[in-house]
C-alpha cells in the first residue's frame, strides 16, 4: 500500500471528524449553536497552549488568562486605534503575548512547582489590574468597543458561520503545528524534562532553554486565542481575563487530560458546552460544573484522555500503545533535591 493511502487510512477518524465539523453549520443552521462552537474553538486553542506547559514539559502555569488578555487587547488596540489590518494585528497579538511570556519566563522559570504556579497567578492578577486601571490606554473597566470584524486577504468575515470557519481554520493550524512540535526533538526534550528534570539535564538537555522556549510558544498561542476572541465578541473588558478564566483552562485539562492532543479538545468541548446545555437550570449550572470535576477526579484522575500514552512515538493525534499509568502531569514530579 502506498504510504499516502496508509497515512490517510490511519488518520481517517480525524479526517471524518474534521469533515463533520465543516458541514456542521449547514446541518445545524442554528446561530446560537454556531456561536458556542466558536467559543469551543477559542478554548481549544487556549487549552492546547496550556497543555504544552502543563501536559508536556510539566510546568504548572495557572495564570494563562494573562497572555490571553494581552493578545486580545493587542489586537483590539492595533485595529481600533492604529488602524492596522487584521492579519497584522492578529499576528502581533501572538508576538506581543510571546514577548510577555519571555519576560515572565526568564526570571521565574527557575522556580519549581507551586512557586512557579504562584508567580504565574501573580502575573495574571497584574495583567488584569493594569487592564482595569490604565484608563487612558485600555479604557479601564469600560474596555474597548467597536472592534472591527476581521478581513482576511479580502475576505470579510461577516456572519457567525463565516467566523466559525475562520476559527476552525485557526484551530486546525494550531493543533497541527502543536502536534508537529511535540513530535519533534523539541517535544522529546519537553517530555524528558517533565519525566525527570535532573536526569534530562544530566543527558545534556538544556533545561532552562527549553522551558523558556515552551513558555514563549505557549504564550504566543494564548495571544492568538485572545485575538480570535476580541474580533468575535467585538467588545472586550478586563473581566474576560480574570483568574477564573485561567482556572477554567486548568479544569479543561483536568477533565480532558493533558500530555496529548485529544484531551484538551475533548475537555474544552465538554466544559464549554455544559453551561450552555443547562441554561434552563441556570442557577445550578456552576454546581453541575463542579460536580463533573469532582466525579472525574474520583474515577479518572488523569482525565478522560490523559495517561493514554506517555511514550515518545507520538503520532498526529497520538494513538500509541495504551498505558495504564496513573501518573498525573498536573502534579510536579518527584521533588527536586
Amino acid at each position: 500500500m502506498p504510504q499516502i493511502v496508509k497515512d490517510t487510512l490511519e488518520n481517517s477518524p480525524m479526517i471524518l471528524f474534521l469533515a463533520a465539523l465543516v458541514i456542521a453549520p449547514f446541518v445545524i443552521p442554528n446561530q446560537y449553536i454556531v456561536q458556542i462552537m466558536v467559543f469551543i474553538g477559542i478554548y481549544v486553542i487556549l487549552a492546547q497552549s496550556l497543555n504544552l506547559l502543563n501536559g508536556y514539559i510539566g510546568l504548572i502555569a495557572i495564570g494563562h488568562a494573562g497572555f490571553y488578555g494581552i493578545g486580545a487587547y493587542t489586537s483590539a488596540k492595533l485595529t481600533v486605534d492604529a488602524g492596522l489590518p487584521f492579519e497584522l494585528a492578529f499576528l502581533c497579538a501572538g508576538l506581543v503575548a510571546g514577548a510577555f511570556g519571555w519576560a515572565l519566563g526568564r526570571p521565574t522559570l527557575r522556580l519549581e512547582g507551586i512557586y512557579l504556579a504562584l508567580a504565574t497567578l501573580g502575573f495574571n492578577l497584574i495583567v488584569w489590574l493594569v487592564l482595569l486601571n490604565w484608563n487612558s490606554f485600555t479604557g479601564g473597566p469600560l474596555g474597548i468597543k467597536g472592534i472591527p470584524r476581521p478581513t482576511i486577504l479580502g475576505w470579510e468575515v461577516d456572519t457567525r458561520t463565516e467566523y466559525y470557519f475562520f476559527i476552525l481554520a485557526v484551530v486546525v493550524t494550531v493543533v497541527f503545528t502543536m502536534a508537529r512540535l511535540v513530535n519533534s526533538r523539541f517535544g522529546r526534550a519537553l517530555v524528558a524534562i517533565r519525566e525527570d528534570q535532573l536526569a534530562a539535564a544530566a543527558m545534556g538537555v538544556d533545561v532552562t532553554r527549553y522551558k523558556v522556549q515552551a513558555f514563549v510558544i505557549s504564550a504566543f498561542y494564548a495571544g492568538i486565542a485572545g485575538a480570535c476572541y476580541a474580533h468575535f465578541v467585538r467588545y472586550i473588558s478586563p473581566d474576560s481575563f480574570t483568574m477564573l478564566e485561567s482556572f477554567i483552562l486548568l479544569a479543561i485539562l483536568a477533565l480532558g487530560g493533558s500530555g496529548n492532543m485529544i484531551g484538551p479538545i475533548v475537555g474544552a468541548a465538554i466544559l464549554i458546552a455544559i453551561p450552555e446545555l443547562f441554561r434552563a437550570v441556570a442557577e445550578y449550572r456552576m454546581l453541575l460544573y463542579g460536580l463533573v470535576l469532582i466525579i472525574i477526579m474520583q474515577v479518572r484522575p488523569q482525565g478522560l484522555f490523559g495517561g493514554h500514552h506517555y511514550n515518545l512515538h507520538l503520532r498526529l493525534f497520538d494513538r500509541g500503545p495504551r498505558r495504564t499509568y496513573r501518573g498525573d502531569a498536573f502534579l510536579p514530579s518527584e521533588a527536586e533535591q
Partner: peptide, 29 residues
C-alpha cells in the same frame, strides 16, 4: 556532556513513563 563526562545519577533517575529504549535514546541526546 559534549566534552565526554556522563553521570549515573543517585537513585537511578529513570524517565519513569518512557520505555527502556527511549531512556537509552535520551542518553544519546
Amino acid at each position: 556532556v559534549d566534552a565526554g563526562i556522563a553521570p549515573v545519577l543517585e537513585r537511578r533517575r529513570m524517565f519513569p513513563q518512557l520505555t527502556v529504549r527511549e531512556n537509552l535514546m535520551m542518553g544519546a541526546w
